[in-house]
Design a protein around this nucleic acid. Structure first.
Length: 558
RNA sequence: UGACCCAUGGUGUAAUGGUAACACACCGGUUUUUGGUACCGAUAUUCUAGGUUCGAGUCCUAGUGGGUCAACCA
């Protein structure tokens, strides 16, 4: 194999390779994924996970999983579990045990004391409103708090008493002593500790003061000796704060690098909006197959490898971007084409009777499970005089480019025989009730000597084999690619009320009866589907993952 | 009346001062017992204006456009 194709690096890899070249950190690479345990992971998190884990892996490094649990009001253990489960499912293992920012509360407190002793932090007695009004605006400098000039001794005493629980919530905060006139709002003496007499999911009631993000994140990175702290662009203004604390505290110099988060058409990632979809029953839950959550995509049948591949193909840069949903779907099809077992399911059955096939006779046909993977084996199909085909695969007066069943024409049944349509029976409403055909006995799949070359091949289910099942067909959750683009309209105005359509009269080949939840299939000529967890012994339920590429419908539109 | 980030086909991402390429989408074709897959081909790209240079998508300046920043959230 020749390696003449020079591999291109994204800007993060370029930074790392420069660091490696200069011998920084002895060539060590350690990244981290720092979720706050207050919600479920979604496609945006998947992107961040892939960037952090894949980048580290590429350079022989590791990735820490650290829960950023500095706000006891919103965080819960339930999320800790689901987040770990989702990351593992995506295919990643973190470095050692999961860690928590709350593991460092003691250390962080000492860091704060150190800052106070250096005259770089002070206790502010102002109210939240007062602090906000003295903060200025992006274009107007802020003003110093009247408490900024307290002595070190007084600050030390007050901070200790904050910790001891002597003051009520909101009465005092600890602030970094930086610069109230900075053009960067975040450098205007950011609050670093606040009083919250609340129960923490891990530390219980041990603490009543909690560090803010800016005083926890960078220091946690530093404590863990993270070399490359990769985060999204919205944190770029925090970097001077991040660096300031590390410099003043004289601790390990982790470096933050920001990349543009990935937006995907028809997917929203706002926690508030996703919660609304769940709470107001627009979806069945966080793992509804229409949700952009990792659990939703998993239930829909998206393979982890496809999501990883998608994140890779979407690339990494610093500009705003919206990835077309077709790229995700292409990645899903690419993966599933290689791995999904083939099966036949008729969604809207219409009965076919083979008039020259002996009544009562049946035969077993052998069908490959996956033409892309011969190791996938074969299964049996039960063929007989009566069977079902798709209603839309029959047309009484068909145009010339219709290659399916129509009176007078030949059409192949996949893995079976070639049929010749002779007659059709309709009810009073004009609906087709039964199609009559003859078959060519010498046209059996694999041993066809009929010489007939039909243009079309149909999927089918034998009447004696047919087993009822439920199929849930999914479409995009919204009617427009970005339902949040118009600030004057609620995103729910763009909810697609046809996003989930339940097909309840479908029939499947009986081999599917023993299907386990999560198994992925390609239903021939229909698309990819996976068995839903709601399935039981009475009824198997399938979720549509994604359709097949369809050139016929495009042809028909012309 | 500020600071910071960004600008390459329809959408993304490359090109690291030297022929603007790759993927997806779109269009056309070949193969096919899935109108799938596979394969082949077509269309289409450097925000504007100056400057540096033999040479600029790349470096500099200005402009234009987009994004971000004023939670005791992360």
């Amino acid at each position: 194999m020749s390696e003449d194709k020079k591999e291109s690096l994204n800007f993060i890899e370029q930074i790392i390779e420069e660091d490696l070249k200069s011998g920084k950190h002895d060539g060590r690479v350690l990244t981290r994924f720092p979720p706050e345990p207050n919600g479920y992971l979604h496609i945006g998190h998947a992107k961040a996970i892939c960037i952090n884990f894949e980048t580290a892996k590429k350079y022989g490094g590791k990735t820490n999983l650290r829960f950023d649990d500095t706000n006891p009001t919103t965080e819960e253990t339930e999320y800790v579990d689901s987040i770990q489960n989702d990351i593992k499912w995506l295919g990643y293992d973190w470095n050692g045990e999961a860690v928590y920012a709350s593991d460092y509360f003691g250390q962080l407190f000492e860091f704060a004391v150190k800052l106070i002793k250096k005259g770089l932090a002070y206790v502010d007695d102002c109210t939240a409103d007062e602090i906000a009004s003295m903060k200025g605006t992006p274009s107007i400098p802020g003003q110093d708090s009247p408490y900024k000039s307290r002595t070190i001794e007084e600050n030390l005493d007050l901070f200790q008493r904050m910790k001891n629980g002597e003051f009520a919530d909101g009465t005092r905060v600890l602030r970094a002593n930086i610069d109230m006139t900075s053009p960067n709002m975040l450098m205007r003496d950011p609050i670093i500790y606040r009083i919250k007499k609340e129960h923490h999911h891990r530390t219980g009631d041990q603490w009543c003061i909690y560090p803010m993000y800016d005083f926890a994140h960078g220091q946690s990175d530093s404590i863990e000796h993270i070399t490359h702290s990769l985060c999204s662009l919205e944190f770029i203004h925090h970097r001077p704060v991040y660096d300031w604390f590390i410099e003043k505290l004289e601790i390990f110099p982790s470096k933050q690098t920001e990349f543009a988060r990935m937006n995907v058409e028809y997917m929203i990632t706002s926690k508030r909006k996703l919660l609304k979809l769940v709470n107001e029953n627009y979806v069945s839950g966080w793992d509804d197959p229409r949700m952009p959550t990792i659990s939703g995509m998993r239930r829909k049948g998206f393979p982890a490898a496809a999501i990883r591949n998608f994140c890779d193909k979407a690339g990494v840069a610093k500009r705003e971007n919206t990835i077309e949903i077709s790229l995700l779907e292409a990645c899903v099809r690419e993966e599933l084409n290689k791995t999904a077992l083939r099966a036949m399911v008729v969604l809207d059955p219409v009965k076919v009777v083979i008039t020259n096939y002996p009544e009562g006779q049946t035969e077993v046909l052998h069908a490959e499970n996956n033409p892309e993977d011969l190791n996938a084996g074969h299964r049996d199909l039960l063929f007989g005089r009566e069977l079902y085909i798709e209603r839309e695969d029959f047309m009484e007066n068909a145009p010339s480019k219709y290659f399916r069943m129509t009176p007078g024409a030949d059409v192949r049944l996949k893995h079976a025989y070639i049929l010749h349509c002779t007659d059709v029976e309709k009810n009073e409403a004009g609906e087709v009730t039964t199609i009559f055909v003859t078959y060519y006995p010498n046209s059996k799949s694999g041993e066809d000597v009929s010489g007939i070359k039909p243009k079309g091949t149909l999927h089918w289910v034998g009447a004696k084999d047919a087993t009822p099942c439920q199929v849930r067909m999914y479409d995009r959750l919204f009617t427009v690619p970005d339902p949040t683009v118009d600030e004057n309209k609620d995103f729910l105005e763009f909810y697609n009320n046809k996003s989930c359509q339940i097909v309840s009269n479908a029939v499947m080949e009986s081999s599917l009866k023993k299907s386990k939840p999560g198994t992925q299939y390609q239903f021939l000529r229909q698309g990819y589907f996976c068995t839903d967890i709601d399935s039981n012994s009475d009824m198997i339920i399938f979720n549509q993952t994604v359709g097949l590429k369809e050139s016929y419908s495009k042809e028909m539109k012309k």
